[in-house]
Design a binder for these strands. Structure first.
Lengths: 207, 207
DNA sequence: GCACAGTTGAAACAAGTGTGCTAAAAAAGA
DNA sequence: TCTTTTTTAGCACACTTGTTTCAACTGTGC
């Protein structure tokens, strides 16, 4: 029998190489050869674990999406598990804590966000990725939706807010902030993103 | 002397072909040959008007950006030229009218928005495009900033709102909405985008 | 009609791509 | 040690890319 190698581990290692290449040089440069080099493997090795380039890309896309959402879901479940705090500041802080996992506030999250953007945009014209992209949208919709529900459950919430509508607005804001922070880090610093998010959440509570 | 051909017109024609290819097949497919075919020209003809592919792409990027912002600026100057209406609904409607030019609410604007996204994302790793992208950010910042100033000038505006902060939040929302409407047209219809924008503007006015 | 400019078209090149195929290397079981 | 199977490495092919080069075409001014 050959070297003992966990195939799943190896696939994740290759996916990490994909992330590195995309975040540093863009999706256009994520060729099999470049990815293999970034992973420290030979082209043949990468192809041993992924039949197609399409399969590799879809796998990497799903891993990226999952990585982001798992982080947020972990914090979300903590939030849902305990009773809502009474003070507005604390409610906002708790919700912001969850949603911040979706923003590029440090290097790790920045790389995730960049890769995420590239994949989502590519999925528009790449049918191989469209299914993964659809699942991703559902996942973020669920996370943000649940946060909004928590927020609007508070007695401090502004009256007559429609959860679905506010989720839509919040998702838009998060996507836009993420985009700006990724593309124009000089003009949209992490601190500013944090503040903007909190200001928005605060506006959903009665003053 | 040869055929009389306005070089600038021809360059714009080629740029339009670039837009078509990008909006239908993505930036990755915007090769010189594909663009030439879409423009109904030979490869040599395209290269006669653009020395490099880089030059073509930067030109197309700037034309796209200008096209979007000129539309918005036209409406903005009308808004700034006349006194602000007294009713909240009318203020919101006037501001929304300007900002809607930045959203993909019909096929033309959708194509512009798609191309815009692809270029902005590409500019992150493509130094040839970074200057054009920076100018684009300045332009949208100016437009949105001026709209926010108009809005907050109204006596109906919520007190203590910081224009720069609200501009930041509004730009984020617009980018995010645009992104969603472009990538998930099924879940984010034009009508919904219009409504979300108005709801946000309304929230900036005292109720 | 002629010449000359801009314009077009095509062929060719080097580089890079995904993919198919083959053979060496490696390691665990016999 | 030998076998077997996974893993690795490498070559080759067809294709697309940007770019260069050169020849043909075209229409205007003389």
């Amino acid at each position: 029998m050959p070297k003992i190698i966990d195939a799943d581990d190896r696939r994740e290692l290759v996916a990490d190489a994909v992330f590195n290449v995309i975040s540093e040089r863009g999706l256009a440069q994520a060729s099999l050869r470049n990815v293999a080099q970034a992973a420290g493997l030979a082209l043949g090795s990468v192809r041993h674990y992924f039949d197609n380039q399409a399969e590799l890309m879809e796998f990497a896309c799903r891993v990226n999406s999952e990585r982001i959402h798992v982080r947020a879901l972990d914090k979300l479940e903590v939030l849902e598990g305990q009773p809502l705090p009474g003070a507005a500041v604390e409610v906002v802080e708790a919700c912001a804590g969850v949603l911040e996992e979706l923003l590029p506030l440090d290097e790790a999250r920045r790389a995730d966000a960049v890769v995420h953007m590239e994949f989502m945009l590519a999925a528009r014209t790449n049918t191989e990725l469209s299914a993964a992209a659809r699942d991703d949208y559902r996942a973020t919709g669920a996370v943000v939706g649940r946060v909004v529900l928590q927020l609007l459950e508070s007695p401090l919430a502004t009256a007559n807010l429609v959860p679905v509508d506010e989720a839509e607005r919040l998702i838009g804001l998060l996507d836009g902030l993420s985009l700006r922070m990724v593309l124009q880090p000089d003009w949209a610093a992490p601190e500013q993103g944090r503040a903007t998010l909190r200001r928005h959440l605060n506006a959903l509570l009665a003053n």
